[in-house]
Amino acid sequence: MKQSFLFLLAILSIFTIACNKDKTVTACIEMDKTTINTGESITFTSCSENEWSYAWTIIGPDSAVENTMGWNDIYFVQKFDTPGSYQVKLVTYSDFSFLGESAKDSASFTVN
């Protein structure tokens, strides 16, 4: 009985790995706003597929504190106090801890 269970578990594991191996990781960014005023926030959400890890960065005006920050969740909310043009970048990975196949996406937004 125990051998049958282990055999079945092994077959199931191989099938799961084989099925997931054919899936390509994608990166996709959704924002609830593309233009805000200073003091307001934007929600950034990953609409990616087949990903396990997220690496978000924001690039803005030289004085923007977000230039030195990073996020690694499926979504995050950020308030902006420095006006200017910004770009958010997302790198997704097919495995935990930023390993495996990766994909990239970026989007722009403005703080008035």
Rank of each mutant, 00 (worst) to 15 (best):
C19E: 10
A64C: 10
T57N: 06
W71R: 13
E40L: 07
I17T: 13
I11P: 08
V91S: 06
N72K: 07
T82P: 08
T34L: 09
K33R: 10
S41F: 06
L90E: 01
C19R: 09
W52Q: 02
T92F: 02
E51T: 01
E40K: 02
F44R: 01
Y93K: 04
S48H: 01
P61S: 15
T82F: 07
A64I: 09
V88C: 07
S53T: 05
C47S: 13
T38H: 08
F98Q: 03
M69W: 12
E49R: 05
Q87T: 08
V91L: 09
S85I: 02
V88F: 01
M69T: 09
T43A: 09
I11F: 13
T26P: 03
G70T: 13
V65F: 15
V111R: 00
E49I: 12
K33E: 15
G84N: 08
M1D: 08
G39R: 02
Q3H: 10
E49F: 06
I59P: 01
F5E: 13
T26R: 03
F109E: 08
C19D: 07
D22S: 15
V111K: 00
L9I: 10
D22F: 15
D73Y: 07
D62H: 11
V91I: 14
N72Q: 14
C47Q: 15
E66N: 12
E101Q: 04
I74C: 03
L90T: 04
D105Y: 02
F109Q: 05
T24E: 08
T92A: 08
G39I: 00
C28W: 01
E66H: 14
A27N: 03
V88I: 08
F76R: 01
A10D: 09
A64V: 06
G60L: 04
S106R: 05
L8N: 14
F76A: 15
G60T: 09
E51N: 08
D105H: 05
V25M: 09
N37S: 11
Y86M: 02
T92G: 05
W52G: 04
S97P: 00
E40Y: 06
E30H: 05
D81M: 02
A18C: 12
I59H: 05
L9Y: 14
T34C: 06
M31G: 03
